[in-house]
Each structure stands twice: as C-alpha cells, then as structure tokens.
C-alpha cells in the first residue's frame, strides 16, 4: 500500500473516530448513541488494520480483528440488552420512555459541544511534543486519540443516565487504545489482551450494577445516588 493511500486511509479512519465521539455528546437517545459507539469501535479496528497493513505486521491485524469484534460487536450488544431489559420492564407496556433518553444531561448539549471543542484544542496543544518526537503520519494523528479521551471523560461527567455514563467510559477507553495504536502501533499483545479483558469485565460489572440499581432505585438516574455523603 503506497504511502499516500496509507496516509489518507489513516486520516479518514481517525476523522470518523473523532466524529463519532462528538456525536456521542450530541445525541440524547441512548439507542442511537450505542450505535455510534459501535461505529467508533469499527473505526478503531480500521485504524489498527491500516497500521498493520502499512507496517506488514500480521500480529497487529489479528489484534485489530479482536478489537473490532470486542468494541464494535460484544460491548454494544451488551449495552443494547441492558437498554432493552430496561425498556421491556417485564410488563405489557413499555416502561416510561425517559429511560431510553438522556432527558436532562448535567450540561446542556450546546454547552457540551463547546466544551468538546475546547478539549480538542487542549489535546492538540498537549500532543505537540508527542508529535515533534517522531513526525510520522501515525503520530501526527495522536491528538485525535487524546481528544477522544478527554471527550469521553467529559461525557462520563456530563451524563445522568447510568448507561450513558458507561458509554462515556467506553469512548474514553477507545481513545486510549487509539492513542496506543497511533503512538507505538499497539502495546505488547499480552498487555492488550489483559486490557481488553479488563474492559469487558468492567462493562459486565456495570451491566449487573445497572440491573441492581433498577431494582433498588427503580430507575437508572444517577441523581438518586446521593445518600452516601458528608452532609
């Protein structure tokens, strides 16, 4: 694959990757957000695949495939099941529609988009020394990874629904994995395996906790979680 095509493909994948993160902040319906998350997982796998192809490292391609399956397939499936369980509610009628939507985010959508822009700028400023160290097309895309990390963290802070917070966490994690691929074309395989396994387990735990929260609090609005405090 020639150098030019490789660079364009890489930039395309990173572009889609960053766009998905912004869309996660933009849309309120959880069903849509989960689908965008799946797209982002696919973009991440694409980045890995392009890098693997360019550097002729077949191990990387295998890792890309694994990442794709996990982040585009398994995790979104889990989130959709959690949503459906909430939605079905086991009764003849659907549970109130607010479960599926991020009705009142902590920071309204317009403000959060502005904050996302600022975070992207901060990411670019922070990444300058990283790029300067080894200016290859891959490292030049590093700021994208960092900005997705910051946007993920902001989504984690700004979302009231439990599942929306899980999505935020997964966006944060995608960002880190992307940074890893772009910076040094992936961490050593056993570490990558461990990390993915840990992320899967974390989502599973959160899945179980969401179910327990729905049983205890009757909903997944995180504002109910205020009993443990120093007041």
């Amino acid at each position: 694959m020639s150098h030019g095509v490789y660079a364009q493909l890489l930039d395309l994948a990173c572009g889609v990757f960053l766009l998905c993160a912004v869309v996660v902040l933009w849309r309120r319906e959880l069903a849509v957000v989960v689908r965008v998350l799946a797209v982002q997982g696919a973009a991440l796998a694409a980045i890995a695949a392009v890098l693997g192809g360019h550097e002729r490292r077949w191990g990387l391609l295998v890792v890309a495939a694994g990442v794709g399956v996990l982040r585009a397939g398994v995790l979104p499936y889990l989130l959709r099941r959690a949503l459906d369980v909430g939605a079905v509610g086991g009764g003849p009628y659907r549970e109130d529609v607010s479960e599926g939507r991020e009705t009142r985010p902590v920071v309204n959508v317009a403000a959060s988009l502005v904050v996302a822009a600022l975070l992207v700028l901060l990411a670019y400023a922070v990444a300058r020394p990283l790029v300067a160290l080894d200016p290859t097309p891959a490292t030049r895309a590093l700021p994208v990874g960092l900005s997705v990390v910051l946007i993920g963290f902001f989504a984690l802070v700004a979302r009231r629904r439990a599942l929306a917070q899980v999505v935020g966490f997964l966006v944060l994690d995608n960002g880190i994995t992307a940074t890893a691929f772009l910076a040094a074309s992936g961490v050593p395989p056993i570490v990558e395996l461990g990390v993915s396994f840990d992320v899967l387990l974390a989502v599973l735990v959160l899945y179980v906790l969401t179910a327990r929260m729905r049983a205890a609090f009757g909903g997944t609005d995180l504002d109910d979680l205020r009993e443990l405090s120093d007041r």
Binding site: L156, R226, R231
Partner: peptide
C-alpha cells in the same frame, strides 16, 4: 467544607476532570 463530600457522582467525576485539565 461539608459540601465538598457532596455525594453526587458527577461532582466527584467533575473533580477528576478539573484535576486532569
């Protein structure tokens, strides 16, 4: 200062984001 340990998840994560930024 009792307000610092306010109890809401968002406040705590807010501390984290503020620290990171």
């Amino acid at each position: 200062a009792r307000g610092l340990g306010g109890g809401s998840v968002h406040l705590y994560l807010g501390y984290g984001l503020f620290g990171l930024v």
